[in-house]
Design a protein around this nucleic acid. Structure first.
Lengths: 205, 205
DNA sequence: TTTTTTATGATACGATTGTACCATAAAAAA
DNA sequence: TTTTTTATGGTACAATCGTATCATAAAAAA
């Protein structure tokens, strides 16, 4: 088996074990030995493919981000052709809500990483600015489309509304994650919000 | 000095050191020795007042919650007598926004604890349900008062709006904490939201 | 076939951690 | 004054961690 082994396949196999350990025991409790045991390989092999623990942690965050992007893309591609702005926003909300185990795992680890990045200089804190920024731009774009199609009022401030929407989505997601809200109550709240957003066609001043 | 020493004063002195270490190095990096060094006392003394690390961690969360409640209370008491619903909501938002160092520290540690509670059974996860629930009830009450005074539409669903408001406040707070939003943009967004909430007096169907 | 490179295992090392134990100074109680 | 209790320091211990080193099986290259 040695020589000619797919490095990327090997790395992603180890990263899968990393995610499992991190989700089960907490990001802070991840150790190279625990990841090795989870993957069924030796400590040395984890070192071989990620060099240091910092390398593994950084790769873990990158993998998390990639996974999230794929989930969003899959969800949006599953929509009917030319979906309405509201349908698209609903899909973005649904994929962000930590309902299934994989989604809950993502939320837990993403937030843990975000907090870690605030004290640990080895974790890039740009990720937690750039990634939400991209989502916010996407939402702003959806809102613009909604304005063009007459679904939303043309006077609606897309940038401001996008900021509110992404914060609301994130806030409701966290509330569901910690168990303060149920998926149902969070969804009703979001739908109610969309109702008013669509209904407030004449703005407020 | 021994015999007759104020235990509560001693504990809160150590907890202050605990907060400092946790905020500077991250909650995961807190050790009994680091707290002892920060407080300028011996490891043994930290053990004496908190017994185990789990005891210290639990006391840390309780202290954090108490600190937050005091901040909210102080802020609300500083308002003019009989403030409008909007003024009260603005104050709640302002105190929740991580602008000053103490507020940023609170947000970082609170969220870190919330994530920790999801994998560590020694940290009570009820805290992260009960505490937001109390805030949500308070917001709902404020909205009811606003409805009575005519500031908000009487048909407004207070429970639903409170859920949205608390999630929005939390979401914007986190966005500011990680640096994705500035305090100014978050504040504009919140004000804009309040505008529409107050303006949508005829509901939406 | 011999040699080199790749991938992996085993393990040792120094550092750090939570916990437990022993000693003792100081104050209160007798 | 003697005795007991409280508060604190010092330290030892076993466990765990990240990292580094040595050895080697296996495959590719020569």
């Amino acid at each position: 088996m040695p020589r000619t082994v797919d490095h990327e396949e090997r790395r992603s196999m180890i990263l899968k074990a990393f995610m499992a350990v991190a989700a089960r025991e907490g990001l802070h409790a991840v150790s190279l030995r625990a990841v090795a045991a989870e993957a069924g390989i030796s400590l040395r092999s984890v070192q071989y493919y990620f060099d240091t623990k910092a390398g593994l942690m950084q790769a873990g965050l990158a993998a998390l981000e990639k996974l999230s992007n794929e989930r969003v893309r899959t969800r949006l591609e599953a929509l009917e052709p030319s979906p309405s702005a509201r349908t698209t926003l609903q899909a973005l909300f649904a994929v962000a809500l930590p309902t299934d185990r994989e989604s809950r795992r993502f939320h837990l680890l993403w937030t843990s990483y975000a907090m870690l990045a605030m004290t640990d200089p080895e974790i890039s804190d740009r990720t937690f600015v750039d990634s939400p920024n991209r989502l916010q731009e996407r939402i702003a774009f959806i809102l613009e489309e909604g304005k063009s199609s007459g679904e939303f009022d043309g006077a609606l401030n897309g940038e401001l509304e996008a900021t509110i929407l992404i914060s609301l989505i994130h806030g409701l997601g966290t509330a569901v994650l910690v168990g303060q809200q149920t998926s149902e109550s969070a969804t009703s709240s979001f739908e109610h919000y969309l109702d008013r957003l669509a209904g407030a066609k004449s703005g407020n001043g």
